[in-house]
């Protein structure tokens, strides 16, 4: 479409990207006018949404270069980078929120990434697919094989999700690392909120993904 040749190329159109339901839940945890870093931001849909609807100074890091190019070509401040290596370069408390959406299970050192997130940001927003979900448990129990679900959709030998965890596991890690859980909720695969707010055990069984707002205690 934007092929540069003789004649006029099409102007760049700035159209608001459509936001996924789970991204709306994340945006709901973020106060307006704040500084946000979205790690693994993909094509930048969330940061676009945060800028447009909340006036946030939102930036992104993405490992997939094609996505980075798409985001920057859309006018969004996104840089190529890796959650495992690039967070250490930011000064302390550069951001009000650091977001890691559906990526924690795929990084090499999840604990170190969390530490970096809560060093460079006052708060961290993390979402991850819950390995404790009923269908995962049932498949492993009944078939004795690695589960394949909508969230865990790649065979064990080629999945990028090398660090699966459950909602309960994540609570434990937060306690161990001394992070205060300011908000949490369980959601289904589409990102619709599920109703077990007060019951971690049930959320861990019925929630397909967990969403947490943390701060240093």
């Amino acid at each position: 479409m934007n092929k540069i040749g003789p004649g006029r190329p099409e102007p760049v159109k700035r159209i608001a990207k459509s936001v996924r339901v789970d991204q709306r839940l994340i945006a709901g945890m973020i106060a307006p006018g704040t500084r946000v870093l979205d790690i693994g931001c993909g094509d930048g849909t969330l940061i676009d949404h945060l800028f447009r609807t909340k006036g946030c100074d939102a930036r992104g890091i993405e490992i997939d270069m094609a996505e980075v190019t798409r985001a920057v070509a859309h006018g969004l401040p996104v840089m190529h980078g890796d959650a495992d290596f690039d967070l250490s370069h930011y000064p302390n408390e550069t951001f009000d929120y650091v977001v890691l959406s559906r990526t924690l299970q795929a990084v090499e050192r999840p604990r170190a990434v969390l530490q970096q997130m809560l060093r460079i940001g006052a708060r961290a927003v993390i979402s991850f697919p819950n390995f404790g979900h009923l269908s995962v448990r049932w498949q492993l129990f009944s078939r004795g094989r690695m589960p394949m679900t909508a969230a865990w959709d790649r065979p064990w030998y080629e999945t990028p999700n090398i660090h699966p965890c459950t909602i309960r596991d994540f609570f434990d890690l937060c306690a161990q690392e001394g992070y205060a859980v300011e908000q949490w909720l369980a959601a289904d695969e589409a990102g619709r909120r599920t109703p077990w707010r007060r019951f971690p055990l049930l959320a861990n069984l019925f929630g397909e993904q967990g969403l947490f707002l943390l701060r240093r205690a």
């Binding site: 930036r59 980075v68 690039d86 000064p91």
Partner: peptide, 19 residues
Amino acid sequence: RTIARALNRAAANVSFVEI
């Protein structure tokens, strides 16, 4: 990348693309 990381250290607003 060295420039981009220095800009990160300076907390500057940076986009970084490799074509």
